[in-house]
Design a binder for these strands. Structure first.
Length: 289
DNA sequence: CACTTGACCTGTCCGC
DNA sequence: TGCGGACAGGTCAAGT
């Protein structure tokens, strides 16, 4: 799913549902989805109470009072779906039409809490994972050592934005936006949406983009990320929030998944091409190569 | 070193 | 209706 706005939406939902709960049981059916040893899980997870839910880049962190944290990456198709005490886990649940009976064939990890409510990690493509780390070691995970700044943090300025990108002058701007070491949290949807907003062609080399255009991109990126959070993220296929509900951003999208539809600015038909190895949506008139 | 491609998986859609 | 191929929100490792 899951770019910054989707993971943030899940974080807010989980904060509402599972803070203060005690983990009573864990099960998983796919080693790569939850690679920690069983003994480790027993020692540091069972009986632990959830103290906080955090997000960094596209990664979700569930902090426990054992000073361990669950570190979760949803990759392309991951879901974290909560079902409360007294809610049906299958037939009868209000979200059945979307998610259906849980666990389902995509469920890789299930956490059961002491009040019998449950949290399901579903992941059709099995790229995602849940790992257990000592909370203090989380910042030392290789990914976190390399990842760039949060684009929505209050102290992330347009000057800092330009400086980060100028470290990759010979890369095309789309690849640079997707590179988590440059800035955190941007994926294919919001890369395309923000480049359309700034009228920049995705293949343009970073060094050939003016400071003024980069300032516009900074503003457009923050605009689309904030709007997407407000709309509960984008549900292109699998993404759902902690309640199992879809996000609404794509009804507002200007180019993503809108090939052959009119550009909202100039009515030219949106085209789909391939840039940086990814499906890429542009207006051929507004975004000149 | 910087940049690109393939691999990791399952499922769906599209053309023949 | 079946089958092969391309493609899907993300990262890594390996290749050039």
């Amino acid at each position: 799913m899951p770019e910054l706005p989707e993971v943030e939406t899940v974080r807010v939902g989980l904060t509402q549902f599972i803070i203060g709960k005690t983990i009573a049981g864990v099960s998983h059916d796919w080693g790569k989805s939850f690679p920690n040893a069983v003994a480790e899980v027993q020692s540091f997870l069972i009986g632990a109470k959830i103290t906080a839910i955090r997000r960094r880049a596209k990664v979700l962190l569930i902090d426990l009072d054992t000073e361990y944290s669950l570190v979760i990456h949803l990759k392309m198709t991951g879901q974290m779906v909560y079902r409360g005490t007294g809610e049906a886990f299958g037939a009868g649940h209000p979200n059945d039409s979307l998610i259906g009976v849980l666990p389902n064939k995509s469920t890789r990890v299930t956490l059961e809490f002491s009040d019998s409510s449950k949290l399901f990690f579903n992941d059709q493509r099995k790229f995602g994972w849940v790992k257990l780390f000592p909370t203090l070691e989380v910042p030392n995970i290789d990914f976190f050592m390399k990842v760039g700044p949060e684009p929505l943090s209050a102290d992330f300025t347009q000057v800092a934005f330009r400086e980060r990108f100028l470290r990759r002058p010979n890369t095309n701007i789309k690849a640079a936006l997707l590179d988590q070491r440059v800035i955190a949290g941007v994926g294919n949807i919001y890369a395309d949406e923000s480049l359309w907003g700034a009228k920049i062609h995705p293949s343009t080399l970073v060094k050939n983009i003016s400071a003024q255009k980069m300032n516009t991109l900074y503003a457009e990126l923050r605009y689309v990320l904030n709007l997407a959070i407000e709309k509960g993220g984008s549900s292109d296929r699998n993404y759902v929030n902690a309640e199992g509900k879809k996000g609404n951003y794509l009804t507002f999208a200007r180019v993503f998944r809108r090939e052959n539809q009119p550009c909202p600015r100039c009515s030219t038909a949106i085209i789909k091409t391939r840039v940086a190895g990814r499906g890429t949506h542009t207006c051929p008139k507004c975004q000149k190569a």
